[in-house]
Design a protein around this nucleic acid. Structure first.
Length: 892
RNA sequence: GCCUCGAUGGUGAAAUUGGUAGACACAGCGGACUUAAAAUCCGCCGCUUUCCCGUGAGGGGGCGUACCGGUUCGACCCCGGUUCGAGGCACCA
């Protein structure tokens, strides 16, 4: 074998070997335990970044470990190929999104292959392929039939200059990213999926402590996040009656203004109501009040995100309209509030300043009355300063509330619901924070929504036999309007499927979350042209282990769960939940540097082109360019935004290519696994890569030393029949102790300590001074064979090469399917153990006892020990705590 | 603003989940080898220049897991509060 570790040769040879044997191709084998291990599919942004390397290496380690343990393991890969960045690239470079996307896929696929991932490429899926997105369209039509998909208005960010809808990411401080124009909220029609009708099941399966919960293999944090996102709340929906008539003379909303509240117990404290700017009452009042009309216009500026709405200044204006309090009969003024969302509930809320912090601030600002109706024992109420106890649901009791006085929160809610129901004005209602999923996007690079608009028949579904509705490949978006709308060949020239008259094709495309909601089922039978999913899915699903970034904890995972349930209800799959176990990989973060453009947008700079500017204390206060970028010269001051996730849009991804070139894929893989546990956030710093490379060189060097001894495989297997020296026994104790730990760490997927374990093994082997006897050689051969198998899932190339070169393969077969080593219990036996000795909980020495000693014997040994006698100064023990295998604590 | 998570030496981290804090590494320092450098090998490496013993190598004591407080024989781990950071907030994926 080569004396020096030549990673390029090692990796090239290993790839050739695996490719020649089609080593990762898997089929559905009955009678073998299947395991489906899958990573969240990447967006083909151009190059892999370290987050990908981390994600797929975790997946690969799991796959290889399980395969050695006798499982039939599937690890597929695909491309989340539709989306905004392709359109942005088209805007910037004039390249059609399709071309850009497919080139990126080709490059990234080659990078993945260089990494040596055990992917079954025969199952590759790209979501922009018509044979894939046809089934998005097909299922959408099924959902329309079932009433799960429906049409209603949605609120979008509208750029008035480019006449186009903007994604939230394209709105920077309320301005359009390219035009700098103030963005407006605009209502347009779109398709929705009725995810809320699955809210109860989605909650039950994920909720911690719920007896119906099935997702016990998910991290608690993700389950909690989903539970809070679904946000089930019990409350009361009721109406404030009124006699306000519209211009047509009819009562607006049939004379009832509905609100929803979880705090019906505070209904006697209502001093105003607030409605959304789009509410019918607001619109009506604005007709005669120019100031109000102006305010409603103002409410339309600003973004649509919840974060923005929640942090913006709460503003309101009175409408001059009054509704009637359903229980007291009092007249209550209706205000328009910029914090009330039309899309949530009925677009109107009751205002109880005394017991809701937001209402309290609103009342102070606009000098509205504050009426206390809940009291917490022993606390005084102030109508000037808010205290959290005013909103306390547990300790509060109704006051100033007529017949509700003295009732607890729960009892009061029941009573109020009863009173309202008696008048036909309201009832208890369960609501969810979860909203229906709006899937219409006014963009080009996505799945066309299969609808044809006819003047006579309205929105008509495209007949199933006409699917797929193929997306034209020649569109180059220019940033204005709706690209497909401008593409005449797509938009026009179609006929209504019902009447055959000229009609217009729907030009909206689907949210890309649709694509990623079921691709993992398509992997099971990716080329099936007859069915969306077939028998393959019955074999592989549910997925046994899903691996992906924590940033997908809510949206993607919730949509995929919903989509799976819809497919189940249509009889397409048998599973209730798609992902049995979930590992949420921590983000790989890097510094973010930006600079404002003249139009108010932002340019982002690659961290390698930037250096920090520090203040005297060494704190980063800014940054400047170390290279000319575009028109900007070296030294240009730019903004430092702190650290954040590596992304194309922030231009802060680190390409693993340099690492792979310089050190090889094994080092890149080993380093990402060693440097932090899979779930932890990782701030990127490649300073320690050398250490991982050094370890692999040492492994190689050790193999070189061993290769003088022939037939290592057979020698290793003979270890149980040899007479072992004391040193050899000590070596085996160390190797097998570490092996046991490594195996445990593999099972809990804590791969960083797997790597440390392998390093400990090599240290032990290296330190071993064998005398060349058969026993010593056997212990060495066994130990190195164990080490190779322990590192193989992390660094398959070097392990494969040494396994073959040193003759292990001849004895135990190819490493891919070599049996996983088992810790030898006999080698783990110790005669005596050392226990820590504590006095009053402080470490004061240790005591060595026979491994078989019971509690009484340990206690006696501890009290008799030199360390205790010396340090206790004759104090009498009051209590002795013995923790077997760990310590003795004597309380004196 | 809301939901979730995190914070341990100069650095990445470990501690089998309430029982020896800092395994394994990186960086650094000292030494060996070398004409020299690289590579390699050996040793040291939380703080305590302001605690004690020792001429010294070293040994001991005290402190120490973001901060404040609590529970416990014993707390990085459990509880209450605070600060800072990250992820998500429905059109980035």
């Amino acid at each position: 074998m080569q004396e020096k570790y030549a990673h390029k040769d090692v990796e090239r040879a290993a790839h050739a070997h695996w490719n020649a044997n089609d080593a990762y191709r898997v089929t559905e084998v009955a009678g073998k335990k299947k395991f489906y291990a899958c990573s969240m599919l990447p967006y083909p942004s151009g190059k892999l970044h370290m987050g990908h390397v981390r994600n797929y290496t975790i997946n690969d380690m799991l796959t290889r470990y399980l395969r050695m343990n006798g499982h039939n393991v599937l690890m597929p890969m695909g491309w989340d190929a539709f989306g905004l960045p392709a359109e942005n690239a088209a805007l910037k470079n004039g390249v059609p999104p399709a071309k850009w996307t497919y080139e990126n896929i080709a490059y990234m696929k080659q990078q993945m292959q260089a990494m040596g991932l055990a992917i079954d490429w025969s199952r590759e899926v790209a979501t922009c392929d018509p044979t894939y997105y046809k089934w998005n369209q097909w299922l959408f039509l099924k959902m329309l039939e079932k009433g799960i998909a429906y049409r209603k208005t949605q609120i979008v960010n509208w750029d008035p200059v480019d006449q186009t809808v903007l994604a939230n990411e394209q709105v920077i401080d309320g301005k359009g990213w390219r035009t700098g124009a103030t963005v407006e909220k605009r209502e347009i029609p779109g398709y929705y999926l009725n995810i809320t009708s699955y809210a109860d099941e989605l909650l039950d399966h994920v909720q911690l402590g719920n007896p119906k919960a099935t997702l016990n293999g998910w991290p608690d944090k993700v389950r909690l996040m989903q539970e809070n996102w679904i946000g089930k709340s019990e409350g009361v929906r009721f109406a404030f009656p009124h006699d306000i008539k519209g211009a047509d003379g009819a009562l607006i909303g049939d004379g009832k203004m509905y609100v929803f509240t979880t705090r019906a117990d505070t209904i006697m404290g209502v001093t105003f109501c607030a409605v959304a700017a789009e509410h019918l009452l607001a619109q009506y009042a604005a007709l005669t009040k120019p100031a109000l009309a102006a305010f409603i216009e103002e409410c339309k500026t600003g973004g649509t995100t919840e974060a923005e709405l929640a942090t913006q200044e709460k503003k309101g204006m009175a409408t001059g309209l009054f509704v009637t309090h359903p229980l007291t009969g009092a007249q209550v003024e209706v205000w328009v509030g910029n914090y009330v969302l039309m899309s949530y509930g009925d677009g109107a809320v009751m205002g109880v300043p005394a017991h809701d912090e937001r209402d309290f601030a609103f009342a102070l600002k606009y000098q509205l009355p504050i009426k206390q109706v809940i009291a917490v024992d022993g606390e005084t109420f102030s109508d000037e300063v808010w205290a959290d106890s005013y909103a306390d649901k547990q300790r509060g009791v109704c006051v100033n509330s007529g017949e509700l006085d003295g009732l607890s929160q729960k009892a009061a809610v029941d009573k109020v619901a009863e009173l309202l129901a008696a008048q036909g004005l309201g009832e208890k209602k369960t609501t969810f924070r979860l909203r229906d999923w709006g899937i219409s996007r006014q963009r080009y690079w996505g799945t066309p929504i299969p609808i044809i608009h006819c003047a006579e028949h309205g929105a008509v579904p495209v007949p199933e036999q006409d699917l797929p509705v193929v997306l034209p490949q020649d569109c180059i978006p220019d940033g204005s309007g709706n690209p497909l709308h401008k593409h005449q060949g797509f938009h026009a020239g179609v006929v209504c499927p019902v009447c055959g008259k000229p009609a217009r094709r729907e030009t909206d495309t689907m949210d890309t979350f649709v694509d990623s909601s079921w691709y993992f089922m398509r992997y099971c039978d990716p080329t099936n042209s007859e069915k969306m999913v077939a028998e393959g899915a019955d074999y592989w699903m549910p997925m046994d282990q899903y691996i992906g970034g924590i940033e997908h904890a809510i949206l993607h995972l919730l949509y995929a769960r919903f989509w799976t349930k819809v497919m189940r209800d249509l009889g397409l799959v048998k599973v209730d939940e798609p992902f049995s176990k979930l590992l949420t990989q921590g983000m790989v973060l890097n510094h973010i540097y930006s600079r404002r453009t003249e139009k108010g947008g932002k340019d982002y700079f690659w961290p390698q082109d930037v250096e920090h500017v520090l203040d005297e204390a060494g704190k980063v206060i800014g940054a400047r360019l170390t290279k000319a970028v575009g028109d900007l010269p070296v030294g240009t001051a730019i903004d430092y935004e702190g650290v954040g996730t590596m992304s194309k849009s922030k231009n802060n991804g680190v390409d693993p290519q340099d690492l792979i070139e310089k050190y090889g894929a094994d080092t890149a893989r080993l380093y990402t696994m060693f440097t932090a546990p899979p779930e932890a956030t990782l701030e990127w710093n490649d300073a320690a890569v050398e250490g991982s490379y050094r370890f692999l060189r040492r492994v190689w060097g050790f193999g070189n030393k061993l290769c003088a001894t022939a037939g290592l495989g057979a020698l290793a297997a003979s270890v149980g029949r040899q007479t072992l020296s004391k040193a050899a026994k000590a070596l085996r104790l160390e190797v097998h102790t570490v092996l046991k730990q490594v195996d445990y760490d593999y099972q809990r997927m804590q791969y960083n300590t797997v790597v440390s374990g392998a390093m400990k093994m090599l240290n032990a082997l290296d330190d071993f001074k064998g005398d060349g006897s058969a026993g010593d050689n056997a212990a060495l051969a066994e130990g190195f064979g164990i080490l190779l198998r322990c590192i193989y899932p992390a660094t398959p190339h070097i392990a494969h090469s040494l396994w073959v070169e040193l003759g292990y393969a001849a004895a135990a077969g190819e490493l891919l399917d070599a049996p996983w080593p088992q810790a030898d219990e006999a080698a783990l036996q110790r005669d005596e153990i050392e226990l820590m000795l504590q006095i009053n909980g402080k470490l004061r020495g240790s005591v060595t006892v026979p491994a078989s000693a019971d509690k009484a014997a340990i206690e006696a040994a501890a009290l008799a020990s030199e360390a205790f006698v010396k340090q206790a100064n004759g104090a009498a023990p009051k209590k002795v705590v013995v923790v077997p295998g760990r310590l003795v604590n004597v309380v004196v």
